[in-house]
Structure formats: structure tokens, C-alpha cells
Design a binder for these strands. Structure first.
Lengths: 138, 138
DNA sequence: ACATTTTTTGCAACTTTATTGCATCTTATT
DNA sequence: AATAAGATGCAATAAAGTTGCAAAAAATGT
């Protein structure tokens, strides 16, 4: 098991306080997060802009991915790597709960293959399922 | 074939100038549109806020749907109804071209069934495929 | 350990995207 | 033509995201 510091280094990111804490927060949280959530969570500890830049650096270095969504605020979630650090499987399913509004990645579910109309070339796919999540379905 | 006016009435919307023109613009355009695009297209003809409210009323009355996306600006596209005006099949595929950045609905493609983990209840699904569209693939 | 280089951070200002309140005007109805 | 319900434009505000720049912190070389 890698430490948070090692993960940052593996992704060519300098180790700074905000990066340690943001990454750690993502790890302790199975759902996708927005900038607004991080800003609230880290209250006055880090600057808004620095949080934006932390998210951007994580995106660029393959630690996070964006989740397409129609809420207006960008959702970020941790990437899962199997073995190779520098590849990320973009082909998994995201689940958005209509009750609690949380988004999570369903890493185990594969997006089924489907064949596109002529001349369309697929590079990646993103399936967003809406419904009621396990936690809310009681 | 229904006139634009008839379509508005069928969806319980009053017939106004902006609604006629916005709906007509969506019909003449096979791609998804953003508020910004409409604002530019209608220049000083209609107020920004009125355009937002037009989009909202179309969403609420089932004429348009939002397309989940990670661009930051909400994308809207026409709903397709088969027979019943008041149902909309949310289960189709959206295609976003990495070259021209346009989003279109692939109405003919069905999202394959897939089975979720225990206790998850699916209500609708939205598949966004990225790649190169037919127009750009030449 | 110290100086140097490179990158990151915080602050201020700004842009873009979207929403709300309210008076006025338009549509549909009688 | 009068009325009621709903839509529009304008101003203000909120929310989401970006840019420039000087100061601070990390990594690098000696």
C-alpha cells in the first residue's frame, strides 16, 4: 500500500500540504466531489484558487477524472489504476443518486460494447446512471 | 407534420416570439446547443434572461433535455417522442466530437441493459461517447 | 547546509454561467 | 374589449471558474 506522498510523487506532483490533504480527502470519500465541497471542507485553510489549481494538477497528472453531469458544477473522482500508473480506464460507469445527489464510480461495471454509425470513431465512453443508490435504498 | 406553434401548444406552452424562434433554431440544428450559442445567435433580439427562461420552460415541458457533459456550460438538445408527447426516452446515446466539439444525439442507438450491484435502482441512463464524428472523419 | 532554480501559493481582479425580483407587456380566455 | 394568467426585459446578484503577479515553498546542485 502506497502512502499519499508516494502517490503524489508517482504522478510527478510535488508534495505540498494542500495536495496531501485534498488527495487524502478524496480517498476517505467514496463519492465524487466538487470544488465547492472542498472549499467548504477546508474552510479558510486554503485559498479557493489554490483548490482549483490542485484539482487541475490532479486531472492533468491522472489522479482524478471529471464526471460528466448536468448539475452545473464540475464533479471529480479518483482514478483507479491497475498496475500501470499512467493509464486510466475511462470506460467505467458512474452512478448518480436522485435522493442524496451523490455521484460514485462503479468501477466493477464495464460499459458494454456497442457499434456506432458509419464513420464515427469512438475514443472513450462515459455512462451515467441515475437512480437510487444502495445507501438511500432502505 | 406539426407546425412549431402546434408543438408548443401540445407541450402546454404559450406561443411567443422567442419560443417560436428558439424551437425553430433547435429544429434546424442537429447538434446540442448552449445558452451562449443562442445568445450569440439571437444577438440583441432577446434578453439573456429570457433565453434562460425559455430553455427552462422547454426542459420542464419535455421539449428539451440536458446532456451531461464536463465542459462547464449546459448543453440542450431536442427530445424525440414516439407517439406519446409526454414521455421521453432518456436512454439514448450522446456523441461528442473531440475535433469540432459538437454534441449530437444518436437516437437510434439503445443503451445496452446492464445489471447494477445489489440495492441500486436504475431510473435512467445516459451514455456519452467521445471521439470523432462523421462530419470530421474525412 | 546554503544558494539557486523551479514550481506552488495567496490575493486581487475579472470572466463566464446562471438566478431572482419586480414592473411592464403579451397571450389566452371570457 | 376586459380580465386573468403568464412571459418579458432590466437591474442586481449569485455561483463557478480563470488570470496575473509577487511572495513563499519545494526540489536541485554545490
Amino acid at each position: 500500500m502506497l502512502t499519499i506522498e508516494q502517490i503524489l510523487k508517482q504522478h510527478n506532483l510535488r508534495v505540498t500540504q494542500i495536495r496531501l490533504e485534498v488527495l487524502s480527502y478524496f480517498q476517505s470519500n467514496k463519492n465524487a466531489l466538487t470544488h465547492a465541497v472542498l472549499e467548504t471542507h477546508f474552510a479558510k485553510k486554503f485559498d479557493r484558487v489554490t483548490i482549483y489549481r490542485t484539482l487541475t494538477s490532479f486531472l492533468e497528472n491522472g489522479l482524478l477524472h471529471k464526471i460528466p453531469d448536468d448539475s452545473g458544477a464540475t464533479k471529480y473522482a479518483l482514478c483507479h489504476h491497475e498496475g500501470n500508473v499512467h493509464t486510466h480506464d475511462d470506460h467505467h460507469v458512474h452512478f448518480k443518486c436522485k435522493k442524496c445527489d451523490k455521484i460514485e464510480c462503479l468501477y466493477n461495471l464495464e460499459i458494454p460494447k456497442l457499434h456506432l454509425p458509419k464513420k464515427y470513431k469512438m475514443e472513450n465512453a462515459n455512462l451515467l446512471i441515475e437512480g437510487i443508490c444502495a445507501a438511500c435504498n432502505n
